[in-house]
Nucleic acid binder design. Structure first.
Lengths: 198, 198
DNA sequence: GTCTATATCGTGATAGAC
DNA sequence: GTCTATCACGATATAGAC
């Protein structure tokens, strides 16, 4: 058997890395950085504990890498609202559905863990400073402004409106409803009643 | 100096116990059962680690005791809505304000920790089964029914309405907004727009 | 009743065989 | 590249002095 060439090795390494990160995201999101043991991640990824340290220097580095990825995803996801078609309200509903749909939920929970837990690595804390509520508000301002102009969205302070939107959505995301007995994600139409002109 | 009599000793013990529980609530609510070290609780309470074990057999027992207290509080708090005065909407707003006000928040966060974390003591899990979403819905049903009857609250499935109410409120509580940079608790009037007849 | 000292165990991270 | 064995440390819970 010929030895693997450089390209093949790199591919194996990349796949392993992705595999570890996917496993780590699952566990970190639910259990936080302290509640997560490296053994849990390695078990979830189906590899040994020792191997993880070939790909990430420490638990902290792994966590921080995931936070970075989560921030990137949330920003690009929010930006995409402007590429959607339909009225401002329709856009907002579609954005909301996309956020609440189980897809991005793990990343969202991870960011919440990173924001609230104390023993988060300094670098991750620093990254989170760049993903402030204000930034998201700015990103959604044009959408809400247009909605108010055409009389589709409720009047009132636009900052308060968007802040309320993000706060409620954040709350729903961090609840981790799929795993909560009895809880059910409210319909988007229900939530939108807060923001539509009555 | 005469020796302390039985009554005095009991009083000291009771005070210490309360003191430990208050400190433990603060720490558990924010950091969860795993993230909380007994040393943190003892530091918060201003006593030594060893002494804690004179009052609670283990970390698990302490946690479970707090969960029990939290459930009791949330039930009696919700029940009180029927003793309030005013229209159904006014009652609901006052209940909401009471819940969201920092007061009960620690207990709420504790219950969320207990619901979502994996390594919660079996007994605490069992207690939580008794505090199901369905129970709270039943408790609020009369209020919503009257509100719908007099045309103050939105029409539609009453179970969905109350479920949405509790889910959104739960989300806001678990966010732990006081400690979150940029986040702000939405005004109750804003939230109520979801449930009022437009 | 309260403290300090310590036994015991679990976890993060490393070393070295394959 | 991957695994197993191991070190070093920190946390729970206990023991015993005051």
């Amino acid at each position: 058997m010929p030895p693997l060439n450089e390209e093949q090795l790199r591919q194996i390494r990349d796949e392993r890395r992705e595999q570890i990160m996917a496993a780590a995201l699952k566990v970190f999101a639910r259990r936080g950085i302290i509640g997560t043991k490296m053994s849990m991640i390695s078990a979830e990824a189906g590899i040994s504990q020792g191997l993880m340290y070939r790909y990430f220097k420490s638990k902290d580095e792994l966590f921080t890498t995931l936070v970075e990825q989560a921030i990137q995803g949330s920003v690009s996801g929010t930006e995409q609202v402007h590429n959607m078609q339909g009225s401002p309200l329709e856009k907002l509903m579609r954005l909301t559905e996309k956020i609440l749909d189980e897809e991005g939920q793990l990343y969202f929970m991870l960011m919440h863990q990173a924001r609230t837990s104390e023993e988060v690595p300094e670098e991750a804390k620093h990254l989170l400073k760049g993903a402030s509520m204000e930034m998201y508000i700015e990103m959604l301002k044009p959408l809400f402004e247009e909605g108010q102009k055409i009389g589709e969205l409720a009047e009132g302070d636009i900052g308060e409106l968007i802040s309320c939107y993000f706060t409620v959505i954040s709350g729903l995301m961090t609840l981790n409803i799929p795993g909560l007995d009895g809880y059910e994600m409210p319909r988007v139409e229900m939530l939108m009643r807060m923001f539509t002109k009555s």
